[in-house]
Amino acid sequence: MLFISQLLNGLQLGSIYALVALGYSMVYGIIMLLNFAHGDIIMIGGYIALFSIASGVHPALAVVMAIVGCMLLAMLIEKAAYKPLRSAPRISLLITAIGVSMLLQNVAQLLFGAGARSFPSSSIINAQNLSFGGIQISITAIVTIIVTIISMLVLTFLVQKTKMGKAMRAVSEDLGAAQLMGINVNHVVSFTFAVGAALAGIGAILYCCRYPLVSPTMGSLLGLKAFVAAVLGGIGSIPGAMVGGLAIGLAEVLVTAVGLSAWTDGVVFAILIIVLTFRPTGFFGRSMMEKV
């Protein structure tokens, strides 16, 4: 009984991680950048949804606004901060990403205050828990899992079947060669950031429905864990992000169920270290040899 509801719990959390992890994974696959600001885009998405619902916008429209807001923000960040550094050493790019993440967090803190605000989750998903012979099943969890599956299917279609997806795959294979074949790399990179941010926006709404609090630092730990999920699955790989996200979500719920909830964050990172020690490219990652 308890097992099933815990499993569902883990799947719900894991789905959110997977959605966020995809954003990391896709961006890394294309420009080899750990986008530290990704987690903070989620936070901004949460605030957009919160404020638009508070000002009387229809919840469905608020969700769309949050997603579009995340996309625009991510594209702006890419143009302003990452594009000038595309040929710079990777370490500079990484430090810039850390800077962007800090900037978003602190600007949010200045504008919205450091404290957490409660999120009107009931106006987005308003349903009681179902109960089947003693098993409590949360509707939010079911909705989260279904939305995630749909998003994954759409994303897979986008990457595998459309022209833009083909261009994305080409750029991630070899940026220089793709450019020579007439692919507009700048468009593809912007598009990738936008898609990643849209998934982050969906993740933000689902996350806020599960933990109905929005605060300037909510994105940092969520982002880090999602990043761990992406690394675990093999960064740059879409199925890897899904598997990694579910693995982290289930592991977290398991640790909590055993009664060690205070150790959750430690366990997540310990899993990362152990996996990377034995399989440095994660579950599904391609191993890349550096050419001299």
């Binding site: 370490i91 990043f227 690394v231 964050d265 990172f269 270290i273």
Partner: peptide, 23 residues
């Protein structure tokens, strides 16, 4: 374990280590 890995992975593994210490 960390230094068998390259740049980004090293960054994230040391970050994880810092968090583990704090926890």
């Amino acid at each position: 374990p960390a230094l068998r890995l390259k740049g980004d992975y090293l960054a994230i593994i040391t970050l994880g280590f810092g968090e583990i210490i704090r926890v």
